[in-house]
């Protein structure tokens, strides 16, 4: 196996893991605060559409990113309203959001661009361009380390680095700040937080908003960095894989990174059947690689490889007078 081939697979692992990681961290904030969110998929999809549409219209990927975040936040607001204010069923609200996004993106893009539910191809500044890190060209010829730096570490879009940076940031926020402590508490025992005089509703809305922003970045990454434009259903189950990664990581930020890298690696491998055949000596069915994240999650959930215990108050609306 050549170094270059390995680097290519790892490079696409990075690119495919990024939307998973962003969505997974989004879910982490929400679920740690006690709000289940199976609407990650829908929020990503809505953000992907609006970011591509606005990036195409304005010619700026960054304005597109803001629009994507706005779209995702809009759906987050519905989720917050349903599950915090009106104490509805969080799972049902998530399902509704997924369908709302799946339907509206096609209806609106059809009427906006008339291209059968897709946006026009993005080019130039409407897309996030790869960033070449300093000295990447100069160091390229150093054996082993040079290509690793040039191929793998350098040459990604800004959003990839933002996603990676968000892992230590999330870890710090969650475990070293007052907000993080309170947020974790509100997911475990909201009554205690309430007794301490801190607003349960406020904390949960804050978590849902953070979740919306991160899903917005994830969706914008799909449409304006990973690909060049929006196509119908382009999130393709990534929101659910992110959810699976979150369980796999047992709701912890660093493990979320590892889980997303693993699932991204599986997706990257599915794109390169020749590599698998070269390594293993036999063909592995592509379908199997695609569903491996789901199967692994079921095994984890079954408790055969350590137990995944969700935040205790997750999924339950908080009622003050009890």
């Amino acid at each position: 196996m050549e170094l270059l081939t390995i680097l290519q697979v790892l490079d696409s692992t990075m690119r495919l893991a990024t939307p998973l990681l962003l969505a997974c961290l989004a879910g982490l904030y929400s679920e740690r605060a006690g709000i289940f969110d199976i609407g990650l998929e829908g929020k990503m999809l809505a953000a992907a559409f609006l970011s591509a549409a606005v990036a195409y219209t304005t010619g700026s990927a960054w304005i597109g990113l803001l629009a994507g975040i706005a779209a995702s936040l809009g759906l987050s607001a519905i989720h917050g309203l349903a599950s915090i204010t009106f104490r509805g069923n969080q799972l049902i609200s998530g399902v509704a959001i997924n369908f709302l996004a799946a339907g509206l993106t096609v209806v609106v893009s059809q009427s906006w661009f008339g291209q059968g539910g897709r946006t026009p191809q993005l080019a130039g500044s409407a897309r996030f361009e790869p960033i070449t890190l300093p000295f990447a060209e100069a160091l390229r010829d150093i054996p082993v380390l040079g290509p690793i730096y040039y191929e793998l570490i350098s040459g990604h879009t800004a959003l990839v680095y933002i996603a990676l940076l968000l892992v230590p940031v999330t870890w710090w926020v969650l475990y070293s700040t007052r907000f993080g402590l309170r947020m974790r508490a509100v997911g475990e025992n909201p009554a205690a937080v309430d007794t301490a005089g801190v607003s349960v509703v406020g904390l949960r809305y804050a978590a849902v908003i953070i979740c919306g922003v991160l899903c917005g970045i994830a969706g914008a990454y799909l449409a304006t960095a990973l690909q060049a434009g929006f196509v119908k259903d382009m999130s393709a189950g990534r929101g659910y894989i992110a959810l699976a990664a979150l369980i796999f990581a047992k709701w912890r930020p660093w493990y979320a990174l590892y889980a997303c890298l693993l699932f991204g690696f599986l997706q990257a491998l599915a794109l390169r059947p020749d590599v698998i055949e070269g390594v293993l000596g036999f063909k592995v069915n592509g379908q199997l690689l695609d569903v491996l994240p789901y199967i692994l999650t079921v095994i984890i959930l079954a408790g055969f490889v350590g137990k995944a215990i969700p935040p205790r108050a997750g999924g339950e609306p908080y009622v003050k007078e009890r």
Binding site: L81, G88, N89, I92, A96, N98, F99, A102
Partner: peptide
């Protein structure tokens, strides 16, 4: 369909 789920279920 999404709106029906939203209003009859979540909201």
């Amino acid at each position: 369909q999404a709106l029906v789920i939203l209003f009859t279920g979540a909201l």
